[in-house]
Nucleic acid binder design. Structure first.
Length: 270
DNA sequence: ACTGGCACCTGGGCGC
DNA sequence: TGCGCCCAGGTGCCAG
């Protein structure tokens, strides 16, 4: 489900209710997630305070004095703020009861996400090799040009590689490549600096707008308050295979790039 | 060092 | 209605 804008929207919606809150109790309903939730995570964290929360790539980091609760929402996860005592549902994975009486619930149908207690998250293998945040100044056209030299993989796969840039998934890479007029199959090394400069402007613009709109809700994403995103109204080509391009009316093509469906306009993207 | 392919898991939608 | 198939917003790991 979620890419960077969805995670960011989740963070912003839960932040005021979770920061500074003491954990009363953590209940793990489904420990078998992408990474098995350790049995003593709930005991270790009971009584601790969430000092701060931040996002890195698609991870949410809940910092406490004794370590960081690292959460990834996988393909189908979401966090919800509920009131104490809300009954667990079929796909409830973890409930975090807060001293305020609110409950932070992690739900994940496909269980591709997880929750881990990690001491030094930025040194952990999951996070230490992640590339620059796309909305920071560390992502620039010059940077992408430089790291794409001698990279023969398709530009789309290159952008979705978290070691290159953080947080870009199938929807937003598809949209950004369309906006920049780049064929997603082109080898990353063949793209000139001028196009990388344009691409980065599009990536930042699309992600920023998506965050303002609360992310994209295709099936069931919602933020911590249960509010769906609305960026799906702005999507120009993702999921529109074989429909007419909004710009030139050509039929949009679909190809698989690294097993991910990739839609593009054969006329607008070269 | 890079690359593509597979794995994990459930559910929705389609054709027959 | 039901079955079997394919698809889905991610990403770590593996062999070549």
């Amino acid at each position: 489900m979620p890419e960077l804008p969805e995670i960011e929207s989740t963070l912003r919606s839960i932040y005021p209710y979770v920061k500074g809150q003491r954990i009363r109790e953590i209940i793990v309903y489904k420990p078998k997630l992408r990474w098995t939730v350790s049995k003593n995570m709930s005991n270790s964290l009971s009584g601790e305070v969430f000092i701060s929360i931040e996002r890195r790539a698609k991870y949410l980091l809940f910092h406490t004095k004794i370590g960081t609760l690292v959460n990834h929402l996988g393909m189908s996860g979401s966090l919800q703020l509920l009131s104490k005592g809300s009954k667990a549902a079929k796909h409830t994975c973890v409930d975090i009861n807060l001293e305020s009486g609110l409950l932070l619930r992690y739900t994940d149908v496909r269980r591709f996400g997880s929750m881990l207690l990690i001491q030094n998250p930025f040194e952990h293998k999951l996070l230490k090799n992640i590339g620059p945040e796309p909305l920071s100044d560390f992502l620039s056209g010059e940077y992408l040009f430089k790291v794409s030299r001698k990279r023969s993989i398709a530009i789309k796969a290159f952008l979705m590689d978290s070691k290159v840039v953080a947080g870009l998934g199938n929807i937003y890479t598809t949209e950004a490549l369309f906006a920049a007029g780049i064929d997603p199959r082109n080898p990353a090394q063949d793209i000139p600096l001028s196009l990388y400069l344009k691409l980065v402007i599009k990536i930042k613009g699309i992600l920023s707008e998506a965050i303002l709109l609360g992310g994209t809700t295709l099936r069931n994403f919602s933020d911590g308050n249960g509010k769906p995103g609305s960026f799906q109204k702005r999507i120009l080509i993702y999921g529109r295979s074989y429909k007419p391009c909004f710009l030139c009316k050509s039929v949009l093509y679909e190809v698989k790039i690294n097993q991910r469906s990739s839609v593009f306009c054969p006329k607008c993207q070269t």
